[in-house]
Design a binder for these strands. Structure first.
Lengths: 246, 246
DNA sequence: CGACAGATGCTTGTATACAAGTACTTCGCG
DNA sequence: CGCGAAGTACTTGTATACAAGCATCTGTCG
C-alpha cells in the first residue's frame, strides 16, 4: 500500500506569488549581468523591502548564491556581490575546457538531428546584426549546452554553468567595452561545421581556440580595468555610504 | 577613508555553538556515508530537535543539500534523502574523468615536492591492513585532490567533489558488500609512479583505467541490489510510518 | 584642536508564530 | 461489513521578533 506517488513540479511554481525560486533566479541574473555590480553591498532588509517579501526567502537565496561564490556573506557585517576573482575565472576556464573537449570526444556516430537543427537555427540567430549583448550571451550559452547534449552530457552543463559565474561576469566586462561577438560567432560556426562533418581533431582544436580566445579577452580587460577584480578573496568591500560616495 | 579591511574567517566559526556550517557538514557527511539511507524521510522539526537548534539552520542546510542534489524537498509534503540516481552517477563519472585527465595534461615539469611527499605518505597509509572503509575513502579523496593540486587546480576539486555526491554514495554501497580497497590502492600507486616518473601517457591510461574500474564496480552493485537506486527522479519516497513499517 | 568613550544604527544569525496543504486515520452511515 | 467524508497530525513556506556584534558618529574631556 501507499507506493511512492509522482510529484508534479508545476504545483510548486504556479503559486502566483513570487517564491524563493523566483527571487533566487532574479538575483542571480542581476549578479551575472552586472546589474548588481561586483563589490556592491546587499542588505537582506533592503532586498526584502524592494521585492515585497520578508527576509526569509531573500536570505535563503543569498545563501545559495554564496555557495556558488557569487555573493560573500560576512556575519554581523554585511553581504556583498563578490568581486570577480581571477583565480575562479581561471578555474572555470579549466573546468569548461576539460568538460567540453571530453564531450566532443564522446560524440556518437549518428548525431541527434533535432539538436543539430536547433544548433543550426541558433547559429543563424547569432549572425543577426541587431543582436543585443544579453541576447548573444543567451545564444552562446544555448550553443555550448547543445553541443554537450549532442555528446549525451546535457545535465553536466548545469554543473559547469553553476561554476562559471565569475567567468561569465568577466566576459560581460570584456564585451561591454570591446564589442566582438561576431568573432565568437564565426568560431562557433567553425566548431559546428567540424562536428557535423565528423572531423573530431578539427572540432577539438577549434573548440580549444575558441575557449582560449574568450579567456584571453578576459585577461586583456583585466589589465585594462582591474578595479572590479578581487585582490584578496577575504577582503571586505567598502560600506554602503562610501559606495554612495563614489 | 575606510578601505576594505580583511575579515578573519575563524571568528565566524569559533562561536562555540553549533552553527549552520556545522549542521550542514554533519548532515552532508551522514548522507554521504549512508548513515542517512537513500530515500529516508527528513523532518526539519525532528532534525532541529535532535540537534538542539531551531528549524532555521536545519532548513538552510537542507536547502544547500537540495541544491547539491543530495536531498529532495517537496513543499508541504516532506524532505527526503535522494535515492542514488544512476544518471547523476554517470554524469559525475564523466565530469571527474574529464577534469582529472585534463589536470594530468597540465602537470608542470617540476612537481611541488611538498605535495609529492604528502601523496607518498598517503599511499603508505592506504597500504595498512587495518584500514576502515571511511578511512580509505578519506585517503582516496585526499589522493585525488592532491593530484589536482599538483596540476595547479586544487580549487577545481571543490566543484568536482560537490557534483559527485551520488557517485560517492554508490561507491560506498559497492564497497560495503564487496571489499576491495587494495585493488584501488594498487591503481593509485600505479598512477603516482607514472606521474613522478614523468610518463604522461601511462599516467593518463592508469587514471582512466582506475576511474573506469570504480565505475564498473558501481554498475555491478546496481545490478545486484537496485532497490536503493532511483527509478524516476520525481518520485516521492514512501512516508515515515511506512518506513518504520519496513 | 585632538583623542577617547559612549551611543546609535546598521548588519546577519537564530528562534518562534502563523499560513497553507497533504496524507492518513477514524468515525459515521448505508 | 464496506465506504465515504470529516478530522487530525504532520509537512514545508513565510513573516516576524529577538539576540549579538561591528562600524561609524558624536559628545565630551584634556
Amino acid at each position: 500500500m501507499c507506493r511512492g506517488s509522482t510529484y508534479d513540479v508545476r504545483m510548486a511554481q504556479t503559486n502566483g506569488r513570487t517564491s524563493r525560486r523566483d527571487i533566487y533566479l532574479k538575483l542571480r541574473q542581476m549578479v551575472l549581468t552586472l546589474e548588481l555590480a561586483p563589490g556592491a553591498a546587499l542588505s537582506e532588509n533592503e532586498l526584502a523591502a524592494s521585492l515585497g517579501v520578508s527576509r526569509t526567502p531573500v536570505r535563503e537565496s543569498l545563501i545559495l548564491l554564496a555557495q556558488e561564490g557569487l555573493v560573500q556573506v560576512f556575519p554581523k557585517i554585511g553581504s556583498f556581490v563578490s568581486r570577480v576573482d581571477p583565480a575562479q575565472v581561471a578555474d572555470a576556464q579549466f573546468l569548461r575546457e576539460a568538460v567540453e573537449l571530453a564531450s566532443l570526444d564522446s560524440l556518437p556516430d549518428r548525431l541527434d538531428t533535432a539538436v543539430v537543427a536547433e544548433l543550426r537555427d541558433n547559429l543563424a540567430r547569432q549572425r543577426r546584426a541587431d543582436l543585443g549583448l544579453e541576447e548573444f550571451f543567451a545564444l552562446d550559452e544555448a550553443f555550448h549546452h547543445g553541443l554537450m547534449r549532442l555528446g549525451g552530457h546535457g545535465d553536466v552543463w548545469k554543473t559547469v554553468a553553476a561554476a562559471k559565474g565569475h567567468l561569465d561576469r568577466a566576459r560581460r566586462l570584456g564585451l561591454h567595452e570591446n564589442v566582438s561577438p561576431a568573432v565568437f560567432a564565426a568560431q562557433h560556426h567553425e566548431i559546428f561545421d567540424a562536428v557535423v562533418g565528423g572531423d573530431l581533431p578539427l572540432a577539438r582544436t577549434a573548440m580549444r581556440t575558441h575557449l582560449r580566445a574568450v579567456f584571453d579577452d578576459i585577461e586583456r580587460i583585466r589589465a585594462h580595468s582591474p578595479e572590479l577584480f578581487a585582490a584578496d578573496a577575504s577582503t571586505v568591500p567598502v560600506r554602503r555610504n562610501v559606495v554612495v560616495w563614489e
